[in-house]
Structures are given as C-alpha cells and as structure tokens.
Design a protein around this nucleic acid. Structure first.
Length: 437
RNA sequence: CGGAGCGUAGCGCAGUCUGGUAGCGCACCAGUCUGGGGGACUGGGGGUCGUGGGUUCGAAUCCCGCCGCUCCGACCA
C-alpha cells in the first residue's frame, strides 16, 4: 500500500485513555479505534495483524485435524436453558430480545450450540473422534473493560470443541490440541507456557492456561527454563501418533510452571536454581476437558458397537485472537514503537522515500515497491525524513528499506532490521532477497 | 458492583475555585525556505465548551438531572 493513500492514522501523542503499552501503541500506530467501552474497530493495519494471527491459528488447528466451521454470534436463550447456563451465567452475558420478544443473547462461548449442531448431524460411533472450531466474535459484558483489546468486551476468539467416545479418546484430543498450541504460539513469535489451571469438578489435570511472557503481564509466573528451549516446529512429535503425544505430555508435565496464585514454593525449591525462570504473563489460551457436561443435557449420544448408547466426552480449547494482537505488542515493543514478529506484521517492510520528487529515490522506491507488492507499505508522503523514521518505527515493520538521495545516486538503499536496529547499505537486489528470503 | 476522577478544535491540555466577547502546543490548509530522526517563517481554517434543565442582565465557569469515558478494587479468552 501507498501510505499517501492509506487510512493509517498515526498519532504523535498518546490519547489519554490508553494506559498500557500495547493500547497506546495500537492507537498511535493506527491499528484500532475504540467505539465504546471495550469495543474496537480494526483499521486496515490492525485488521491485517488480526488476520495474520487468525491464519496461523487456523493452519495449526487444521494441522491437528480440527475442522473449521462458523457459528453465529447471536444465540437463542432456549439453547442455554437446556444446559442450565442461561440463568447461571449472570451479568456477563449480553441478553437481547427480538421483535417477537424472544430471548436471545450475544454468545460469550459456544458449547451449547456446537453440541446441538454436532448432535443433529452425527450418526454413528464410527465418525469419532472429531474436533470442530471456529474463529468468531464473542461478547462478554465485563464490568470493567480495560487494557485496550487485551480485555475488551467484544473479542475475537478461536474456540474448538472435541468429541470423543470415551475419556481415553478425550485425553488424546486434549494432548493434540496442547501440541498445536505450542506450535501456534511459537509461530506468533511468543514464548508461551502451559500452566495447570483449575481442575473443576471432573478433575484430572486436564485444564491448562497458556501464558505468554511479557514484561507488562498481569500476573507473576514461575516456570522451568526447559520450556523456552524447545523448537516446536522442529520437535519430533507426530500429532497422529498416540505414543508421541504421550511423550509430549510427559515432557510438558515434567517441568514446573505456575502462576503466583498456584505457586508451590516447596516444589519450586526442587527446581535447580539455574533452571528457574520468573516473569510476568498474560493468559492467551485455555484448554480443558469437561466430559459429558454438555453432551448429556443437550442430548448428544450415538449408538455404540454393542448397540448401547454412548454419551460422548468433550473438551473445549480457546485462543484469544484479538487479545493476542495486544499481547504480542506487550511482549515486543520499545520506546519508539511496536516490533512486529515477521509472521504477524501488517507489512513485512516499510519503504521510506526520504526525498519524494528526487528522480532516483522515486525510481528505486517504485522498483522495491513493485517487487514487494502487498508485503510493503510504501511511505511516499511528502514528509520530512524524521517523521517517516518515527512512523516506521512506531508501526513496527520488521524491515525498513530506507531510500535517500545519497545512496540512491549509487543505486544503494539502507536496510534496517527493526528488532535489532541494525542498518546496512545494500543493493536493491540484496535488500529484496533479505526481505523475501 | 463499591470507591475516585475526567468530558473545552483531530490529539494533548489551560481556562472553572473568584460568572463578563474561548485560548495554547501539536496536527490540518496555502505559500516560502528547507530536506537522513517529528525543521523554520508567514498567512489561514476549525468549537452550539458531553447533554438537558435551572439561577443570572450575562454561564465553559454556579446548582440539579442524565449520558459517556478512564483509573483503583472484586471478576475474566
């Protein structure tokens, strides 16, 4: 995109309502605008980020064998009355009435709905296991929304729901999803640690929160260094192989990890000192097994091989997609602005034309822009160099192609890596190779 | 939901206490000089001071109601 013709309204000053770094930077970099308390509009740059995050989540869900669907945001109250949650959910649920005075709600989650949909279509025990997910907007009427998109009322979430014939099957589904999460967060450029969460009435250890490490995180976390050492994209775990999943789980559960509420100082003391890590964390995902909590009341059952009905065991698996946009910034920014990981950046590169109107600068910028296409945001505004540098740093492009009259005269550009600040003078071809490679 | 605060130009703010022709910085528009980390100068445009009522000769300012937003606490992807 050409910045001169783009709606990317950057701000030099911070709006008064933004308190934390990610909120400030999202407003300043022109990613989002608040339209009501805890409700945000996503502008072109922000939408690209959101879509990049969602796409990575989608790819890893698909790779784990889950199938994408799309359920509505509006649900009927009757559905929730069947599970008994309509009255229990409380003020967090946004309740609506249609013109016929029928009770509706804006979905805060989709267990009831997916269970009913699955029940209406599944015919045989032979169709199991299955896992269905969608990436959809949710609404929870938080008493006190804050931290920008990190804790909005409306938020984009990936939620997956697994269906298995028995507990053993559900455990495999759970482990698959945990592995998918480790890969997902790594691809998003994050260090994420699974931590045992509240076990609930059905028990077991089948509930984990995924905490992303960020200096400004809400809670204190303690974990072993081993979590950081693993490259999940290379790690040899086949998600279709139960033995691999077992090995994976053993590895995960062998290492200590806890948030401050659950911190066990005795167990912590057993961790070798050199291996202890502490930090701040933001919850970005939650997975849990809940057995037949919904399948039973929603009347999901299939006939088993022995002719007897089976009530499937379920689990659900959430990732806060819109929250991640904020969390990534919390984990990756500096005084000047955002430092996007390559995988989620709205544009891989910013092209900075330091002297618009200079024939050589213009020609080189056009050449680079043509080669990078949609991967680049071309700052072709007739602005001063300083403003372009500041905006590029603020917007956080992983690469900056800086084209000024000095280098352009010799056909050279400067290539700056946002994350390290490193700048090198290179030919156009070399710059393109670096960015696209 | 308890406690606190704020609402004045696109953004950041002053003016409110003590009523008297609505201001500053940045941004924006035009022009000149500039031109590698938010430059200088000149000239402009932009406000029913959140909203409704009341007091007053006169209200951004005082009084009452309402709405919105933010912060702290209890709660959450």
């Amino acid at each position: 995109m050409r910045l001169s013709r783009s709606f990317v309204p950057t701000l030099k000053e911070t709006p008064a309502e933004a308190q934390i770094a990610s909120h400030r930077l999202m407003l300043r970099a022109g990613l989002v605008r608040q339209t009501a308390a805890g409700i945000y509009a996503w502008l072109p740059a922000g939408l690209r980020v959101l879509q990049n995050i969602a796409q990575i989540v989608r790819e890893e869900q698909d790779a784990s064998g889950a199938q994408e669907v799309l359920m509505p945001t509006i649900q009927s109250a009757d559905l929730w009355r069947q599970s008994g949650r309509y009255d229990g959910y409380g003020e967090e649920m946004l309740r609506l009435k249609d013109r016929h005075k029928r009770d509706l709600l804006y979905g805060p989650t989709n267990e009831e709905m997916i269970t009913e949909i699955f029940a209406s279509g599944v015919k045989s025990y032979r169709e199991f296991p299955q896992n269905l997910y969608h990436i959809q907007w949710k609404f929870r009427d938080e008493v006190r929304p804050r931290f920008g998109v990190m804790r909005g009322r409306e938020f984009l979430m990936k939620d997956a729901y697994s269906f298995d014939l028995d507990y053993e099957g559900a455990v495999i589904a759970y482990r698959k999803m945990m592995l998918a999460y480790m890969r997902t967060f790594q691809r998003l450029g994050l260090k994420a640690i699974p931590m045992v969460a509240d076990t609930g009435p059905i028990g077991g250890d089948l509930s984990h929160e995924f905490i992303v490490l960020a200096p400004t995180g809400e809670s204190q976390v303690y974990f072993e260094g081993g979590f950081e050492a693993i490259d999940w994209m290379k790690a040899d775990f086949d998600n279709q192989n139960p033995a691999d999943l077992e090995r994976f789980t053993t590895l995960m559960t062998s290492m200590y990890a806890a948030t401050d509420e659950k911190h066990d100082t005795a167990k912590w003391a057993e961790v070798p000192e050199s291996n202890r890590r502490e930090g701040r964390g933001i919850e970005v995902g939650h997975i849990f097994y809940f057995g037949t909590k919904y399948s039973e009341p929603m009347k999901l059952s299939v006939i088993g091989p022995d002719g007897k009905p089976i009530i499937p065991h379920m689990g659900s698996y959430g990732i806060g997609v819109s929250r991640l946009a904020g969390a990534i910034i919390e984990a990756s920014h500096d005084e000047a602005g955002i430092i996007w990981p390559d995988s989620v950046a709205p544009w891989k590169a910013g092209i900075l034309n330091l002297k618009v109107g200079d024939a050589k600068c213009d020609a080189i910028c056009e050449e680079v822009y043509k080669a990078l296409g949609g991967n680049a945001l071309y700052d072709d505004r007739n602005e001063r160099a300083g403003g372009k540098f500041a905006d590029a740093d603020l917007m956080g492009h992983p690469w900056q192609v800086i084209v000024g009259p000095r280098g352009a005269a010799n056909g050279m550009v400067e290539l700056k890596r946002r994350a390290t600040g490193e700048r090198v003078e290179v030919s156009v071809a070399d710059a393109l190779a670096k960015i696209l490679g």
